[in-house]
Design a protein around this nucleic acid. Structure first.
Lengths: 224, 224
DNA sequence: GGTCTATCTCAGGTTTATCTTAGAATCGCT
DNA sequence: AGCGATTCTAAGATAAACCTGAGATAGACC
């Protein structure tokens, strides 16, 4: 079924561009030019995803997000922010946005994020990933190695999830940093090594075989 | 291995700027001033990414993109468009560009997009190269000779990748040094010989036939 | 066959990437 | 405010990958 996307922005150039791009990708698109209109349209036809500019006349993007959330709506929200409005992004993520996109953006990037969000929201429910003797339950966020239960911190979970989604694939350190930490690092920090270390020690706590192997000069692989 | 980027623009100010920025970031850069030249250079040395101005004399950027795609080339394309040329972006989307950058652009933005595209394409490109009884999996970075599994160090991998992308073709020592080591050597060192030796010993570990043949005074060939 | 030169091999020594550890900053909760 | 969990930083330890240099080998040419 065609996913329905609500685009909220007061600039017609933006909404037109978004409509064209999204329609081209096969989505059904609704437009709202203000926060209130957005809430109304959202009741009329609950969208599968909302693209929300943070700067809106009247009710702004953050408030819209907040109201949707407090009404119990878990629809994924992609927020549009101005360049360098770091504070806004942080606020946006706090108030319930799921991802943000900096204006101006490339159509491809928009599409990629929309797809990612839709996919994620679909997969949100309990899935149990398995590889070798490891299980990872995305519902409880608990891992098992054989019968042993392993609790994971959020970052450890993200990292293990990434590995278990791509077993046997060599993941470059760039990709891992991007997926788990969001690219802000680069060269300067060794967080990734430290977390690989944490995960290894949890996964091998009782002398089990190594699963996360380092590929020197490249990254890591998850395999037997 | 250093990624190779082809920059296509007829304005020398732009190409110079791009070359400087990209070279500074450690990429190897080729320049083409027209669509036809771009297609030729792309055959000469297939780039890992193409930066393509949409406005070109003769064959324009859209056509270049289209020809690359219809020739089965999936190289990521970053298209340069004029401000507000929304129609161009949409057209570009249809003809196979992967991302857009509006002129004038900030160097950091260019670099960010280039990195993002390269990362993405690297992630998607898990191909398995085959020649004779050798397989090289670019996802796992593992080689096979027949059923035997062969682990490779990064340099060995780069070297084998180069050979397997050009089987039966004689590669001069200059080209090999350039592609694998980045040209800094020249005359003084024998690293290449040493690594050819390493690869040979791994590929022939169980008495198999020789695949990397030396061509005296010239370089090496990978063939049965 | 002898000589010249290009290439090969091998054994360290060096460099660099990754691992480990401990502790400091931060966060979330009460 | 205080505590535990989590995240990150920093720096020294470790180990893999890399390079060098010298002598061995083998084509090419006479």
């Amino acid at each position: 079924m065609k996913a329905h996307i609500l685009v909220v922005d007061d600039d017609p150039r933006i909404t037109n561009l978004l409509r064209r791009i999204l329609a081209y990708e096969g989505y059904s698109v609704a437009i709202a030019a203000s926060g209130n209109e957005a809430l109304n349209r959202s009741l009329e036809r609950p969208p599968d995803l909302v693209v929300l500019d943070i700067l809106l006349p009247g009710l702004d993007g953050l408030e819209v997000a907040q109201r949707l959330r407090s009404a119990g709506d878990n629809v994924p929200i992609l927020m549009l922010t101005a360049r360098d409005a770091v504070a806004d992004r942080v606020k946006g993520l706090e108030t319930g946005a799921d991802d943000y996109l900096v204006k101006p953006f490339a159509p491809e990037e928009l599409v990629a994020r929309v797809k990612a969000l839709l996919r994620r929201s679909q997969e949100e429910r309990h899935e149990v990933l398995r590889y070798a003797d490891v299980e990872l339950d995305t519902g409880t966020r608990i891992a098992h190695r054989g019968a042993r239960e392993i609790e994971l911190s959020p970052t450890e979970y993200d990292l293990l999830l990434l590995f278990m989604n791509r077993p046997r694939q060599v993941l470059t350190r760039e990709i891992i940093l991007d997926r788990v930490w969001g690219m802000e690092f680069e060269g300067s920090s060794n967080v990734m090594e430290v977390y690989v270390g944490y995960l290894r020690s949890k996964l091998e706590a009782e002398g089990e075989s190594r699963l996360i192997h380092t590929v020197r000069g490249v990254g890591y692989v998850f395999k037997e």
